[in-house]
Design a protein around this nucleic acid. Sequence first.
DNA 1: CTGAAAGCGCTTACAG
DNA 2: CTGAAAGCGCTTACAG
Lengths: 345, 345
Amino acid sequence: VVDVAREAGVSIGTVSRVLNNSPHPVNVATRERVLRAMATLDFQPNALARGLSGGRTQTLGVVVHDITDDYFNQIVRGIDDVADPAGYLVMVLSSYRDADKELDYVRRLRGQRCDGIIFVGGGLQVSGHAAKVRKQLEAIENDGGAVVMLAPNDLPWPSIVPDGETGIRLLVDHLVSLGHHRFAMLTGPAHLRTSVDRAAAFEAAFRDHGIDLDPDLVISAGFDRARAVDVLTELAHRDLSFTAVVCLNDQMAVGCLQAAKRLGLDVPTDLSVSGIDDLPVTELLDPPLTTVRVPMRELGRRGMQLLLDRLERRDVPRSATVPCDLIVRRSTAPPPPDPGTRSLT
Amino acid sequence: VVDVAREAGVSIGTVSRVLNNSPHPVNVATRERVLRAMATLDFQPNALARGLSGGRTQTLGVVVHDITDDYFNQIVRGIDDVADPAGYLVMVLSSYRDADKELDYVRRLRGQRCDGIIFVGGGLQVSGHAAKVRKQLEAIENDGGAVVMLAPNDLPWPSIVPDGETGIRLLVDHLVSLGHHRFAMLTGPAHLRTSVDRAAAFEAAFRDHGIDLDPDLVISAGFDRARAVDVLTELAHRDLSFTAVVCLNDQMAVGCLQAAKRLGLDVPTDLSVSGIDDLPVTELLDPPLTTVRVPMRELGRRGMQLLLDRLERRDVPRSATVPCDLIVRRSTAPPPPDPGTRSLT
DNA sequence: CTGAAAGCGCTTACAG
DNA sequence: CTGAAAGCGCTTACAG
């Protein structure tokens, strides 16, 4: 600012006032001169200094599990959709589901004096972790930062989460009405809240149809495609009594499609496969995947809007959900008339 | 620091010295006391203040085209692989190929006083744009920031770029040796350097085999999957003389696979399809895609390493490349014996 | 409407 | 080895 002040022949206070469009009155001619000086010097204010002297940093922190995962980068895209016009720069941090790393990131975000934090990760059910993260986030709020959550977890901040339950119920209705009654289920990491919640929703929905899952047919594949290939292959060789496999995310469903192909099982004729999320890739597959659609980008947009509301101290609901629809594609069909005759290659 | 200083009963200067592991000597007992005080207070230094008072910000800016594009998020992952252990926080900005937006981001990154910038985007051949970006980046370097490039463009900074040419030559050899001699080519946006370079490499490789591309069979689909579906469909109805379509990126190749399926053309029996990049999705497709592999994550790692070298004022080469291999999967095969008999559904 | 001055939370010569 | 003090580039009461 000092250069600009000299160039325009005014004090640095005045420069700062026009820079910030401050409510403090500035003579229009003076303002003009300052603006011109800023343009000639291609002046770019030091964001650190601005942030330090009481102002906002116009900076946001977003904590996710994995930026290469379409689930998360679609959410980030949605956040971007509204953060960018609002003038915020976004810092995305991937914990890769490591609790220590996640905690460390939140701590550093505190040091960065971000105006706000969008917590999309979390749900890591590691003993003591939630409490530690909570302490850091509270410290951030005490320093004037706002925090919101975009995933189910045990933290007491305003949140928007996908309403997976309704979609899962629709999916189960769909499968049962096709005639399936013996299911396998592929779950995610045991310590992940998302996996636990989705599994519970499936179990409740099945129970409503008088179906109990056989514990032997409920197996974790860690939300991972490659592991799902192995898990389904191994399971099919051991016990092929099930006619549909429900996966708690799309990645694993993709793995099941691959495994079925290798096993010589036709999807959906011999086996129905379903996922959750509706990643962009699912409609490119053969067959396209029946899944529960989580509107990721929309979730991101709404989350950022919520953060904006909090930053501007508007009242916000403690929690809200975005609806998840059932998307029926071609990976589900009635079970084969005589499942016992299916054989593997 | 003032709280820590009080708690430990020392001056703030001393606190700062142990915080920074400064070369300035500190009595080991005093250091111990300070460390303990920091722990009890859960002290997190203000990064803005540190950055402002001459220190580094431990912050990096990465400019990409689109974070939801696997090409870019794999690169970001690679950057993360080495930036994180080195203690840098990464700010990823997506221009969505908008030159003004890209320029604005670079300008704001300047304001943030990032220690370094990794420019993965760019290559936007918009009149005057390169010069403006260059001016901003020069300003950043003048303020002590380091800049590196991870994509071909007209900017004079140390760079690492994929050596697409070699891979493309291998691909053309492969196709020609299968017996193809009439090709269609799907290109990207005309103003994108990446597209222009790849097209030139193909043309050179074809020429070496005495093949000239028919300009009517060279069409832009903007690097976009959905547009590739339309473009190939339209083209096939107009002129089905070609037996192989080479796409300048994988996204468009995926679109071609979809279009071929709808047109009733079997890939690879009726038509060979190839891409470039080797996105994670390509091996999940039906058929899996023959493509030129750009080692994206490796590119990110090497780029970040290069930046680290520059930050520590080591000598670095002005430019380097990462090799790109040909990955032959099942979307390419000899042309049909009598291409004229192929018909569309 | 304009300017001079204090202060944000650190780092780093400079004295001792 | 330790501390007091200047300074980083801004913002914002406070005077005028």
